[in-house]
Design a protein around this nucleic acid. Sequence first.
DNA 1: ATTATTGCAAACCCTTTGCAACTTA
DNA 2: TAAGTTGCAAAGGGTTTGCAATAAT
Lengths: 125, 125
Amino acid sequence: MRITRPRRVLLDALLDTATPRSAEELREGIGEGEDLVTVYRNLDAFERAGLVLRAHAENGKALFHLSPHHRHYHLVICRVCHEAKVIEDCDGDRFERLAREQGYSDVTHTLELHGVCARCGQTDA
Amino acid sequence: MRITRPRRVLLDALLDTATPRSAEELREGIGEGEDLVTVYRNLDAFERAGLVLRAHAENGKALFHLSPHHRHYHLVICRVCHEAKVIEDCDGDRFERLAREQGYSDVTHTLELHGVCARCGQTDA
DNA sequence: ATTATTGCAAACCCTTTGCAACTTA
DNA sequence: TAAGTTGCAAAGGGTTTGCAATAAT
C-alpha cells in the first residue's frame, strides 16, 4: 500500500478524532479540497488492511474509526445528532460463542448503544 | 392508525418471518403487486408506533422485524448473504448503564454479531 | 364528508464505478 | 517505467418526498 498525501491526511483525520466519523465528516476535517471518492476508496483500503472499522448510525450512514486492538468494539450513537462514541469495557465473548454455536464462523460483535447525548437532550427532549 | 390492506399484508409478512428482513424482501414476501414506497412508509409508521425495530446490515441496508417485548435485541448478521437472526439471551443492561453514566438518555442497545452463516461458510470460505 | 393512506414518478443521499491523468516506488 | 492512486463525472442502490387519486372512518 503506497503512502500518498490523501492517505496521510485521512489518517491524520482519523487520529484527530476519538469518535467514529462519516466519510463526509472526515473529508471536512481534512480540508475542503479533498475528493470524497478518494476518502471512500482509502477508507475501504484501510478497512481491508484491518486499520479501520466501519459501523452504521441509525440513519444508515457509515461511520469510520481506527480499529482498536481487539476485533470488537462498542459504540454509543446519539439518535439526534448521530455522533458516536466508543465505549470501552466488554464482558467478553459470550455472544460470539453463542453465534458460533449456531453455525456462524469468523464471528465478531458490535454492540451499538443508541440514546440521546447530553448535548441533544438539553435542546431536544 | 387506519387498518388497510397494505398494512395487513405487511404485518403478515413480518409475522411470517422469524428473522429481520429488508423492505424489499418484505415486499417480495407480500406478493409483487405491492408498492415498495408504501412498505417503507408503513414500516416507518410501525416503527414510530413501537411495533417494529430497525437494524442495519454491514452493507448499510435497513432490516426490519417485529419489536420483541423488551427494548433491546441481538442480531447475528451474515457477512456474505446479510441474513440476520435474532439471538435470545441478554446479560442485562450493563452497557446501557454505562451509556447513561456518560450522559446519554433514553438509551437502548443493539448487539450485532457479524459472521459467516453455516450456509455461506460452505460455499464461500 | 373528512382525513389518512396509497401509488406513481421523480428526487435525494450516500456510496461505488469507469477511465484518463498522475504519482509513487 | 510500471503499478497503484487520484480526480472528475456519472451511475447505482436504497430510501424519501410530492401530489393527485383512493379508501377508511
